[in-house]
Write a protein that binds this DNA or RNA. Structure first.
Lengths: 227, 227
DNA sequence: GTCTATAGTCGGATAGAC
DNA sequence: GTCTATCCGACTATAGAC
């Protein structure tokens, strides 16, 4: 927190440099998300940021450097939304093992938070494409995304599920089932075009997000109820 | 059928033309899947097909024409695997409404067939990327994929689910839940990199596919059991 | 730090010989 | 139908003025 503040002060007090840097990262998020690494041109990036072409190699060394910086930006922003919940869960798991019922409640809370980010945030519109492209062809940015975001999410999810179903947390079946739980939420992003087409939607409205979350919650309840 | 046969005969009997065309489509499937439409160059495509650069505009009009042809190839090949099952279901739904239990059995059969394609076929390695990119940025090829493949799958799935849960088949909740069912399977493709990382897998082996299918089946059983 | 201008590369499509 | 050669546009990165 203190570091972030210091950064901001540095940005506003010093030169335009840090400001250009920030605008380039935000433009990178959108442009790389829309067109992919190869499809995005440095001209698009510079234009979207209102910056000069040469500012990219200057601030980030290369187009790829900007790409990595965008991945780090995603991790930081998602972190703001979901890390508090994950930290709470990790803390609860550190002490004596939570009761089955409490673990189920925590798991539902985690999934609701997750779905709010995945379908509910307009920020997700930019970074969802970015992340999906890295799933297709994992590169250096995938490491940043996985270590900074996905690992803690899937591990927290798996540990809670293990408690609820009464199994060891590194049981392969638990890990597979963890993915099926997350998949129920993720599908609304990864198959967005199909979902919109079939449901006649053109966006995720507040009501639709609630409907999705309600059904996921119901499904998960039923899955957790099984022995 | 007679048309397909006639085409094949024409291909083998006539000139190299039809053969080059076929090799370009198969190369397109792989190259477009790996690099995306923009990322794939006509030189890569021609090299992978063992064809000349100029053969692409000659046979398909343009690079985009080859792209569309690849989408049609996907529809045809997926169709071979899953259309018989879908047709069987559509037939069963045409007559008098199947019993709840029978609908559940058909739904499980459909999902197993679906998961076999999604995670189990080596053909999927190529076309999964192709389809995912179209979900990100739906273009002309998305129409081909949706109308030729996804529409009938999701509709069959939704109709069966409506019977099992005793609701109208155009109920929004049914359509949403349909997506969550498919999502449990799809996640193993769309988040492949994360799944492999968390589970320590490097491929989908026979045993792992069986494990996935078994857990999906269990989840779906529990979801369908709810009222 | 930011700009313009440019070098050097690679892209898709085409013309025309065979 | 297939090939070679080539056009023309767009790309990333850099050099050097300010």
């Amino acid at each position: 927190m203190a570091v972030a503040l210091a950064k901001r002060e540095l940005a506003s007090s010093s030169s335009r440099g840090e400001d250009t840097r920030q605008r380039l990262i935000e433009a990178g998020l959108k442009i790389f998300g829309d067109y992919g690494f190869e499809g995005a041109s440095t001209r698009m990036l510079a234009d979207a940021a209102g910056a000069n072409l040469a500012a990219i190699p200057y601030h980030f060394g290369s187009k790829e450097g900007l790409y990595r910086a965008a991945a780090e930006f995603i991790v930081e922003n998602c972190g703001r939304d979901i890390l508090p919940t994950i930290s709470k869960i990790e803390l609860a798991l550190e002490g004596k093992k939570p009761a089955r019922k409490d673990a189920a409640t925590l798991l539902q809370e985690l999934l609701e938070r997750f779905s709010t980010i995945v379908v509910g945030s307009e920020f997700a519109d930019s970074f969802a494409s970015f992340v999906m492209r890295e799933q297709l062809q994992p590169g250096a940015a995938f490491e940043i995304l996985y270590e900074g975001m996905m690992r803690r999410l899937t591990e927290a999810c798996a540990k809670l599920l293990a408690i609820v179903l009464g199994r060891r947390r590194d049981d392969e079946k638990i890990l597979i089932r963890t993915q099926t739980l997350l998949g129920q939420v993720l599908v609304f992003r990864t198959s967005r075009a199909t979902v919109f087409r079939q449901l006649g939607w053109r966006e995720f409205s507040k009501e639709q997000i609630k409907a999705i979350q309600s059904i996921v919650r119901e499904n998960v309840d039923r899955i957790l109820a099984g022995k």
